[in-house]
Amino acid sequence: MNYSILDLCPVPEGSTAAQSMQNSADLAQHAERLGYHRYWMAEHHNMPGIASAATSVLLGHIAGKTTNIRVGAGGVMLPNHAPLTIAEQFGTLATLYGDRIDLGLGRAPGGDHAVWQAMRRGRSGEDNFPAEVLELMGYLDDADPSAPVQAHPGQGTHVPLWILGSSLYGAQLAAHFGLPYAFASHFAPDALEDATHIYRRDFKPSAALAAPKFMLAVNVIGAETDAEAAYLRTSVQQAFARLRSGKPGKLPLPVDDIDAEIGAAMRRGVDQALRISATGSPETVRRQLAELVAKYQPDELILTGQIHDHTARKLSFKIAAEALGDIAVAA
């Protein structure tokens, strides 16, 4: 089973977007050395704590700093863009860096309603996502001489597409098109079991994929001890609470008492949303990841971890890689 990283290019309190981009390149190189399969980044807007808004631009930076690891979007919010534009961007990446570019596609705006209006100004509010996915597939496939518009670069690059989602809609669409499916269980796990079942049950083999391929997203915060990991985790708990309160900001410093910071009721709600997680010492992370793998039987894991300190974040992903190596040997 492959394991990968989803990096939101977090901007910690006291730091800058420029430093975060340098940190992401360093983390990608670290992930490559540790044997991670993919390094994905996600499109988010109007969030001071996330620096991956111009996703394809940042992916070019990451691909240029690495050699073998697959690099891609997890994902691009396709309704924000013309399919031709995305085909050209990712076709360019594939032309520059060869067959190690992925393109995960989401349907949300990557922000709130104000972002939706700003990103989709002048576009119809109608949901054309399935048609736009098909249009994009056409631009990346072999050229059709009769087509009035072609993507250059893009045509013939066959950049692999993934459908991303946190509801049954994405599962149904990925199954219908015969595409791999990644579920956003790291922050919206409520429909995880149903979506996984529907995707595997209804999957139709395609030219892209002969059998279902399901990716499970997991929060991982590993440290030398359970107590240290719980302390580091308070950064993402605070960030998620602020986002839910409509006050997104930079990734907060960890705190000793999370309930005193955000309140016990909010903390319980945040923990429920972040429950697909492995948090603790190397032994705890290994056990919790093994339980998730046994329960959901993913074809691939993608790990994310919002940790304020860059060195601690690198250690966390090292602990996770070693744990998954042990799990693979045990299997």
Results as ranks from 00 to 15, higher is better:
A182S: 10
K204Y: 01
G222V: 03
H158E: 12
P153S: 15
A217P: 01
G156V: 05
P160C: 13
L140V: 12
N219I: 13
S166E: 02
A210K: 10
S146P: 00
A184Q: 01
Q172E: 10
T196D: 06
S185G: 10
T157H: 12
I198F: 05
L232K: 02
A211T: 07
P160V: 14
P148V: 11
G165T: 06
F183V: 05
S146V: 10
R201M: 13
R233T: 00
S206A: 01
F203S: 04
G154A: 10
L161D: 14
A147N: 03
A229Q: 00
K204A: 02
S146L: 08
E224Q: 08
D141F: 09
L232S: 00
H197M: 14
L168T: 08
V220T: 00
P212D: 07
A230G: 05
T225S: 05
K204M: 04
P153R: 13
V149I: 14
D202V: 09
P189G: 08
L164C: 11
D194Q: 07
G178H: 02
L179D: 02
S166C: 10
A188F: 12
P148L: 11
I221P: 00
S146I: 08
A195P: 07
L164H: 11
E193A: 11
Y139W: 11
G138N: 01
D202C: 07
A191L: 07
A191C: 09
A208I: 07
F187E: 05
V218W: 00
A195V: 03
Q172F: 00
S146R: 06
H197Q: 12
E193P: 03
P189C: 14
V159C: 15
A182T: 14
L179P: 08
T196N: 05
P180E: 08
G178E: 01
G170S: 14
H186G: 01
P189E: 12
H152D: 15
S146W: 03
S185N: 05
A230T: 02
T157P: 13
P212A: 07
P145N: 06
H176N: 03
S167G: 09
L161I: 10
T157I: 15
S167H: 12
L232G: 00
R200C: 10
I163F: 14
V220S: 00
L168G: 09
A182C: 15
A151W: 03
Y181F: 12
N219P: 04
A207Q: 02
A182K: 08
H197L: 10
R200S: 09
A229N: 01
P205C: 11
D141I: 14
Q155L: 13
E228F: 03
D202N: 08
H158W: 09
A207I: 03
D141W: 09
P180M: 11
V218R: 01
P180Y: 14
E228R: 00
V159L: 09
L140K: 08
G156M: 07
A195K: 00
P145F: 05
M137P: 06
G165C: 10
L232P: 00
H186W: 03
P180F: 11
A143W: 08
F187G: 01
Y199T: 04
L164E: 08
S185Y: 02
L209D: 09
L192R: 06
A175T: 02
P148D: 03
P160M: 11
G170Y: 03
M215I: 04
P205M: 14
S167W: 05
L232C: 03
P180Q: 12
A151F: 05
A151D: 13
L216A: 00
Q172T: 09
P212I: 11
G156F: 04
D141Y: 09
M137K: 07
K213L: 15
A171V: 06
A174F: 07
